[in-house]
Write a protein that binds this DNA or RNA. Structure first.
Lengths: 135, 135
DNA sequence: CAGTATCCTTCCGGATACTG
DNA sequence: CAGTATCCGGAAGGATACTG
């Protein structure tokens, strides 16, 4: 582990450089939302309380395993509240906590930006196609 | 080709549901930036043209392999321009393209939001710690 | 300096089957 | 209905060695 910042050189790691550090907020945010399902689940719950099966139906392609895993993670992180009703048939409700709502903010921004700049993705996709053809 | 729900699609798959589809811009944006190194490399290049070794020194923890891979990806996507100078010793310069700059926008937003809401991550981390202790 | 090539380990995530 | 348990293939990613 090359932890380089030696006391002898205090100025080397400036404030600017800190942005790239693992513990810097930007990295931590990405570690949180930069996964396949987390943002989509967050977004889904932003439209209101949901049941398990309901969510699985709304999110195409997600498996039970991934849905459970994602929800559990969000729950232990305190972003989602899980309310279990001991009835027959069983019923469980998931909803965003206050913390969850706060995190939803940047996610929503991303979604909106993406929608408004949709042509970018087509351009990128074209670039990629051209590159793969010419190789 | 993904069977996208065409507009004629009567019920069940409303506009709202489309948000969760793979081909929807939000998903595509996440596929692009939701990786360990891509956003950080993008962010790094946003502060100006860089050399290879320069970047490796600025970004702690990145391996040569990952740096190369990430840069190659960004290059074929048309987000980064690579200029090779055939001199001794070899020199290569990386810089953002116009497309790269556009994508930098949401990345910068994320970083800024994260910095302004840094306490959120501490709260989440505490939640996680508590959960792991009590199990 | 600026990479590529190779090996190897870990984790992601889908499919399936089972339970309360 | 609302999950958990298990298996397994493939991709991500680190370490190391080598090249122009």
């Amino acid at each position: 582990m090359a932890d380089h910042p030696h006391p002898s050189d205090p100025q080397e790691t400036s404030v600017d450089e800190a942005v790239f550090h693992e513990r810097y907020p930007s990295r931590r945010l990405l570690d949180l939302i930069a996964s396949r399902w987390t943002p989509i689940v967050l977004f889904c719950l932003a439209s209101g309380t949901h049941h398990y099966g309901q969510m699985q139906r709304r999110i195409p392609g997600i498996s039970k395993k991934m849905l459970s895993q994602t929800l559990r993670r969000l729950e232990t992180d305190g972003l989602v509240h899980r309310e279990v009703y001991r009835v027959v048939p069983p019923k469980t409700e998931y909803e965003l906590t206050e913390l969850g709502w706060r995190l939803h903010e940047p996610v929503r921004f991303l979604c909106r930006w993406a929608a408004e700049n949709a042509e970018i993705f087509d351009r990128i996709e074209r670039n990629r196609t051209v590159a793969s053809v010419s190789e």
